[in-house]
């Protein structure tokens, strides 16, 4: 099996003593044509991994910013097959940034999970995160991902009981996504104070790196969180920035400029 880009990138960061910056954007917003260029601009800004959101009509774990981005993408006809084609175009541009497909279960179930996994691997994706597929329901899906060289990204939440953490953490691959607060995705004015303890607990049981997301939206917050984790995920803030400049001819440049200081904050920690 070829080396997975996620593993390679985190190994390199670890060797340099750096923290990862993971960027989220919704595929298809403002259009599927724009998505590869936006991913390229995130790579140019220094991001270490990109989570590509697969639009879904009923995103129960997402706040209003990403809900609206999904709606815009769907209104423009975005579909899972379109997203996978966009991943292939990202690779055709020469981007080597690790790509995680961030999705709800129903669109991939409808597509056929095995076909989704083989097509994802063929298009150049590196990992899969299915929001509403907890480990109890994910045995088959997870095994399929592993068989085809995709990392199965697991979520751990503040509500995850301490006794549930070891099993989740020790079986994780790629990286662990620690959802830093109870709630949906979206920007917050402060970061949760419970992050250090929970991340420390996860790290005691995990070999995979631990990235922290949900509610992180500026360089200061990135710096605060990166001090306690292996990486930081920023989503809604970037989606908001894309929304703000959706029609601008220099959209990619705007997004790169917006993201770069947060990358610096993560890498410098």
């Amino acid at each position: 099996m070829a080396e997975n880009r996620i593993d390679q990138r985190f190994a390199a960061l670890r060797a340099e003593g750096k923290k990862a910056f993971v960027a989220y954007l919704t595929a298809g917003d403002p259009s599927l044509e724009a998505t590869p260029g936006l991913v390229q601009s995130l790579e140019e800004a220094g991001a270490d991994c990109v989570e590509l959101g697969v639009p879904f009509s009923d995103p129960i774990a997402d706040g209003v910013v990403i809900q609206l981005a999904f709606q815009r993408a769907l209104d423009k006809g975005a579909s899972l097959s379109g997203v996978l084609a966009a991943v292939a175009r990202i690779r055709a541009l020469g981007c080597e940034i690790p790509v995680v497909l961030f999705t709800y279960y129903n669109p991939v179930m409808r597509y056929g999970f095995e076909k989704f996994v083989t097509d994802s691997a063929a298009s150049g994706a590196d990992g899969v995160l299915v929001l509403d597929l907890p480990p109890e329901e994910a045995h088959v899906e997870r095994a399929l991902c592993e068989k085809h060289g995709l990392r199965w990204i697991s979520l751990i939440a503040p509500t995850t009981p301490d006794e549930r953490v070891p099993a989740l953490a020790s079986s994780a691959s790629g990286f662990i996504y620690y959802v830093s607060r109870e709630g949906v995705t979206g920007m917050q004015s402060s970061v949760s104070s419970s992050i250090p303890d929970k991340v420390a607990l996860i790290r005691r049981h995990a070999t995979a790196p631990v990235c922290v997301g949900f509610g992180i939206s500026n360089p200061d917050q990135v710096r605060q969180v990166a001090a306690h984790a292996d990486g930081v995920v920023v989503g809604s803030a970037i989606v908001k920035e894309i929304e703000k400049h959706a029609t601008a001819t220099d959209l990619c440049e705007k997004v790169r400029a917006f993201t770069a200081p947060m990358v610096t904050a993560a890498h410098g920690s």
Binding site: A61, L131, S154, A157, T159, L168
Partner: peptide, 20 residues
């Protein structure tokens, strides 16, 4: 015990809701 009626049902929720 996993909440299934045959092949229907289950717990398809984000991790945050599993413990509650």
């Amino acid at each position: 015990e996993r909440g299934y009626f045959g092949t229907y049902g289950g717990m398809y929720v984000p991790e945050t809701l599993m413990a509650p």
